[in-house]
Nucleic acid binder design. Sequence first.
DNA 1: ACCAAAAATCCTTTATATTGGAATATTTCG
DNA 2: CGAAATATTCCAATATAAAGGATTTTTGGT
Lengths: 191, 191
Amino acid sequence: MKDNSEIVSLLGKHLQQIRKEKKLTLEQLSQKSGVSRSMLSQIERGQANPTFGTLWNLSRALGLDMSELVEEFESSGPISGKIDVLLAADTPRISNTQNGCTLAILGPHDQVGQFEWYELQIEPDGILDSQPHTQGTREHLTVLQGAAEVTSGDQTIQLNVGDTGRYKADVPHAIRCAGKVALKALLVVMG
Amino acid sequence: MKDNSEIVSLLGKHLQQIRKEKKLTLEQLSQKSGVSRSMLSQIERGQANPTFGTLWNLSRALGLDMSELVEEFESSGPISGKIDVLLAADTPRISNTQNGCTLAILGPHDQVGQFEWYELQIEPDGILDSQPHTQGTREHLTVLQGAAEVTSGDQTIQLNVGDTGRYKADVPHAIRCAGKVALKALLVVMG
DNA sequence: ACCAAAAATCCTTTATATTGGAATATTTCG
DNA sequence: CGAAATATTCCAATATAAAGGATTTTTGGT
């Protein structure tokens, strides 16, 4: 076989960088991926040449595509050092007075489609009914005030103050205000 | 190791498809890549699980990027259809009673490093002082109650209820409770 | 500085990726 | 159809990926 120790070694460094960014220990990554800590250690140090299957397990555990795991990292452009402020009055909102819903769009515009977050408010008896988003999308709802009833697919669940629900958003889904007071919640959508 | 024979088998089929499109025999591909015919045959039939180094050699021989070789398999694995609930009582928290800070970790564990989000509470006069995160990280802070004073690098800014601040988090930064009541805020960290 | 806990590395054993060549199957062409 | 040429699969031997436990190193608190 041709010599490729160089590229194998680079892969190891890249893997280690990703793991450290996620603040995972070898043990934790081992648990999630099913790959032994010793193997992980050897891979990171370029002393082992992982199989495709092992890389697959690792990419799944790290929440990455295979291609992200194997591609060379491109230098991200410089980011403005100043603090950007979005005043409450300027915060874009989506209101549906019909159903008593208000969504304050809190995320930056340049991340739409990947990761969006909202402060959600629903009046008593109101409901936020949503069509399926793109394949693989998930929503994470944390109740800040009141109570919510979440339906995703054929399942329904009740969430109280402080509770978080995580569910598929690539099927029809709905959030209902389940109490006598308005529901306030944090809604995170990950594509 | 977790079972991944299914995906390994798919890789084999994909490789064979590419080879036939290029009208190469096992022998020819073997010559160009340095991988033995027998190994190629086994890989294509899903009877072997090639190493990263072998895949690298193959991708070079086929004139493909590594990511192109594996791009068929980028879509994320099956995601549970059931709603996952994290009760308020079970929500992991980071407390620093010294500085009157509490962070409720709301994001799922498998996204650490990419996106993390928290509900942040700081008592009057309290402060959350943070060391730099990894290069390129930004934080997004939305005030839910009270008022905050955010410092990032050499800049400081005041945020009131409903305001959102976005700033570099790869430099030393701090969030201070700027009012007489406790600060409650949503903190999103993007790596 | 010390100690205890956690994390990473090292060591041994097992499973298997990889090879070269022999055997089989497939295609080509008279 | 049959033989030669080519392509693929099977087999035995070797190198090494992978796992599990033991040891060393690092980390964090007092």
